[in-house]
Nucleic acid binder design. Structure first.
Lengths: 156, 156
DNA sequence: AATGAAGTGGGGAAAAGTGGGGAATTTTGG
DNA sequence: CCAAAATTCCCCACTTTTCCCCACTTCATT
């Protein structure tokens, strides 16, 4: 019944992005009173097969596709003593949460993770090659300014 | 209008595949006067096929599905001297108890195990990849803070 | 201007978490 | 061996949170 033009064109778009298999761009979105965050439309297709949000490196959250999540955790687990491994697992897995999108393409960010990354309402969602990062907007901006000055020696 | 059709299906798909394989997330629950603890709803499906609660590594309890319990036993046998293994088995198995859920999804935690892990009323239930851990909430929090500062080198 | 996609907000139904009464069962003391 | 006491189990009830749906706005395209 509802398999009209809209769905078809969306599917085409999906495929284009999926082929690239990479997260690019920076989006200024808001977290609403219910803790919901609209995932940038360009990122949604890659999350079709499942994604995980967890504590990120620094004051931010990381979103990985299921594929990358497993790949990455397996790599890390490989080179660890069993004591370090236990700590690692107890830090990462409990902090993580599977991502589910509602009909509007929004995810819910658990309160604990919001607190960890200092997220209130105004956030920046950034595609960083193999994952997506969620930052408090002000924190992100000052971080970027720092990178722009300090990191001017990076050859690009 | 009908922009939701494609999106509605992902969440369900994700959950089926993902939730079978892994325990994720951190939940603050309470043990009531009768020793009952509500198992987080996201963990219940995996425990219906049978699960065991036992002394954990550290001041906590571990809950394994029967499937993972066997798997882990095999791993331990591989990496332990036979003396250590015997001690380990004599410590863990007698403490263990099979889990049954009531109509509200609660398990009863035997008094001995509650005492072992210092559990009173406020606990944290944490998904740690292949098993679930139950901690006194205060103990868990200080442990996590330690990991967050000390373990900031973890690249995730 | 019309159309559709994207982002945002909110109401209401459903589920999850919690507490407690009371019957059935077991334990204990006489 | 019986009866009182304690424990366990099965319901029911209440509160809070989550989830699903609908609606509005904005922006880009045509």
């Amino acid at each position: 019944m509802c398999t009209g033009i809209a769905t078809v064109s969306y599917a085409t778009q999906v495929e284009k992005v999926w082929m690239r298999s990479m997260f690019l761009g920076e989006y200024e979105h808001t977290i609403d009173a219910k803790g919901r965050l609209a995932v940038p439309a360009k990122f949604r297709a890659q999350m079709l097969k499942g994604a995980v949000v967890s504590k990120g490196m620094g004051t931010c959250l990381s979103v990985y596709t299921l594929e990358h999540w497993e790949q990455r955790s397996n790599e890390l687990v490989a080179g660890m003593s069993s004591d370090d491994l236990r700590d690692f697992e107890r830090r990462i897995y409990p902090s993580a949460s599977e991502i589910e999108l509602d009909a509007q393409g929004r995810m819910i960010i658990p309160a604990k993770l919001r607190a960890y990354a200092n997220l209130t309402s105004e956030v920046t969602v950034a595609g960083v090659r193999d994952h997506v990062e969620i930052w408090d907007r002000a924190t992100w901006q000052s971080y970027q300014e720092k990178l722009d000055t300090e990191g001017s020696n990076i050859p690009f």
